[in-house]
Design a protein around this nucleic acid. Sequence first.
DNA 1: TACCGTTGCCAACAAGCGTTGACCAACAAC
DNA 2: GTTGTTGGTCAACGCTTGTTGGCAACGGTA
Lengths: 201, 201
Amino acid sequence: MHRDQAADPAPRRSDATRAAILTAARERFAADGYDRATIRAIARDADIDPSMVMRYYGNKEGLFAAATEADLRLPDLAAVPRDEVGRRLARHFLDRWEQDDVMTATLRVGVTNSAGTARMQGIFRDQLGPVVAAVCPDPAEAPARAALVASQVLGMALARYVLRFPPAAGMPREEVIAWLGPTLQRYLTGDRPYSASSDTS
Amino acid sequence: MHRDQAADPAPRRSDATRAAILTAARERFAADGYDRATIRAIARDADIDPSMVMRYYGNKEGLFAAATEADLRLPDLAAVPRDEVGRRLARHFLDRWEQDDVMTATLRVGVTNSAGTARMQGIFRDQLGPVVAAVCPDPAEAPARAALVASQVLGMALARYVLRFPPAAGMPREEVIAWLGPTLQRYLTGDRPYSASSDTS
DNA sequence: TACCGTTGCCAACAAGCGTTGACCAACAAC
DNA sequence: GTTGTTGGTCAACGCTTGTTGGCAACGGTA
């Protein structure tokens, strides 16, 4: 196997520029969403010409795809005590969101761009789905439980990092984890609640 | 007091047109977000000329402000049995979201437009805040509890109506209520969880 | 009838967008 | 030293956007 073909692509002289473009793109997508994050603005941030973005990433959609290769980096929940998976997951998502701009960028674009929506769906289906299936009582319920987990995680991210509701944005990390942990725990391992359609309370 | 000055503004011949513009604007904002919902497209939907939109609403921001005067129409939770406020609120938000396009439009724009973000903050602070304060144990905790409720409600709306995660979008109404009810109940009336910063589980 | 505010359409503007292709400078290979 | 490849700049294109001003028809009022 030749060195240039393997997992390690040949290093190029332009790697620094490519990285600068991706960093600027993530910041802009995270801050402005898809439409307002213009290629010209991204290029200005990266101190290069807009045409370079086209050369290296084809078009704007290609740039977005490259900039938001989001990996949730989920831990193996099977190795965590069963009654702590909720807290553990809450903590992990908070970490992941504050780690870099990729998650915020993906969320923001997911709301305005159809390619972004598809990407968001894929991330949670392919990455969160299996992890949930490994800890929940009935694997058939995994997609629904994963969707519930996603709803609470994304909702907090929305309130805290995008909409910046003051009480949510200012809440200490540990308090957020303490509140969300039990919620996620119930979504993951709790009994499926009774939900007869005749219930009109 | 003259009739024309009072709460009932003089009916105009153009009221039908104004209403058509607002309806079309809500649909477009809800479906496409702020930037992609162009004034030309809205005017086309309403079967009028783009310049009419400018005449009646000043500019695009004015149109958005008029189209998303969002009222959560929250019920008086004081009249609901204390242990059912969670379910009741979950049901109400689901109803409210499926009632018309205003909530989806406001959410979508809130994510991409700074005026929309401000509007979203105002809605939940001024409308949800007082209702939460009326049912939660310590009024000082109301903003934080309201933010938690908002995070779960908005997160489910995001997953179900905007990102359209298949398991969330396809979940029966009553099942969503059964899952979210206890979560909201705990956020509203549950004990403030222990959250010492030394906790590293 | 003549008048005037309202309603509506049309054509155009300046600005900004994504995108393209020509062109130059630096480097590597032979 | 010549040649081909790569990294980068510049100016322009076609298009869409929000926005504007002029102008024709309508509808009450005097």
